[in-house]
């Protein structure tokens, strides 16, 4: 079909997702953006959040949580490079909450400026992971 866009989700360890889909919603740092066929060329960094895949365009068929990374959109399609990604359905709520608690603790214990920044980022990721478990807005 002409009005589909080729979407690939790649992590350093493997190719996680590769298919032609109608629409993808990507959590960019400056807000979510949707990619449809014919999107202009774009490179954007991502914030921790959920990528929504709409295979036919009518409804969300897949939700994948990413901890950050960046997206590249060009005429050939859309590629998301993420260091860590997981299907929302695979996230364990207990583990996610534990991770958030750990991260908050680290943030409190952090002494140097660098440690604090790193811990704050972990908290942000953990919070986004739990938020991802909530209901989809799309």
């Amino acid at each position: 079909m002409a009005d589909q866009v080729h979407f690939e989700l790649v992590s350093p360890e493997r190719l996680l997702f590769s298919a032609n889909v109608a629409e993808i919603v990507i959590p960019g740092v400056e807000g979510d953006f949707a990619v449809l066929a014919g999107h202009s060329n774009l490179i954007s960094t991502l914030r921790p959040g959920v990528i929504h895949i709409l295979e036919t365009g009518a409804q969300v068929t897949d939700r994948i949580f990413v901890e950050g990374g960046f997206a590249e959109v060009n005429a050939e399609g859309c590629t998301v490079l993420a260091e860590r990604a997981a299907r929302v359905a695979d996230i364990d709520r207990n583990k996610a909450e534990q991770a958030l608690a750990d991260a908050r603790e680290d943030l409190q214990d952090a002494k140097s400026e660098i440690d604090r920044a790193a811990a704050a980022q972990l908290v942000e990721i953990a919070e986004a992971r739990i938020a991802a478990l909530g209901t989809s807005t799309y």
Binding site: P12, G28, V29, E30, F33, S40, N41, L42, I43, S44, T45, G69, F70, E72, N74, A75, L81, E83
Partner: peptide, 27 residues
């Protein structure tokens, strides 16, 4: 090479990308 829009700007992306790239090169 195609001309891209950058979001946020080039510098911010590069600053984000280079540490990732370093990890990737080590990996």
């Amino acid at each position: 090479a195609a001309i891209y829009e950058y979001e946020p700007d080039e510098e911010a992306i590069l600053a984000d990308l280079l540490p990732r790239n370093l990890s990737m090169q080590v990996y």
